[in-house]
Design a protein around this nucleic acid. Structure first.
Length: 108
DNA sequence: AGCGTGACGAACT
DNA sequence: TAGTTCGCCACGC
C-alpha cells in the first residue's frame, strides 16, 4: 500500500452516491497529470467494496475496467444500484452524474 | 538508475 | 468514424 493509493482511495470516498467521477478528475485532485498513475493505483488492489472504485469511469463516459468480481458487469450492476444506469456500455447522463471534485475553496 | 507496465487521455492518420 | 500511437506518473524489478 502506497501513500499515493491512499490518496486515491480517499478521493473516491468523496464521490457522492449516484454520481461518478473520472480518472482525470482524481488525477487533478491529487495534483498529478498522469491518469495512468491513478488508474494503476486504483486497479492495484482496492477492487473490494472497501472503496467506491466502481464510481470511477474514463472521460469517454464508458465503463472502463474493473478488477473486482464479475469485472465490468459487476461495476455496472453496482452503479445501477446507486442510480447510475448504463446504456450500451456507457453512462446515461454521464456529465450530469459526473463528479469533478468541486472544491469548496478551489481558488480563494 | 533505467525499463516495462498500467482501471486513461488526447492527438494523429 | 475507428484504429493506432505517444505521453503521462507511480510502482515493481
Amino acid at each position: 500500500m502506497t501513500p499515493f493509493q491512499q490518496e486515491v482511495y480517499k478521493a473516491l470516498d468523496l464521490i457522492p452516491k449516484g454520481c461518478v467521477t473520472t480518472y482525470g478528475a482524481v488525477a487533478a485532485y491529487l495534483g498529478t497529470k498522469a491518469v495512468r498513475a491513478v488508474g494503476t493505483a486504483v486497479g492495484k488492489n482496492p477492487n473490494a467494496p472497501q472503496v467506491p472504485c466502481h464510481r470511477v469511469v474514463p472521460l469517454t463516459g464508458k465503463i472502463g475496467n474493473y478488477s473486482g468480481q464479475g469485472g465490468v458487469a459487476t461495476k455496472i450492476r453496482l452503479l445501477e444500484e446507486e442510480g447510475v444506469f448504463l446504456k450500451n456500455g456507457k453512462v446515461l447522463d454521464f456529465e450530469k452524474c459526473l463528479f469533478t471534485f468541486d472544491h469548496p475553496t478551489e481558488h480563494v
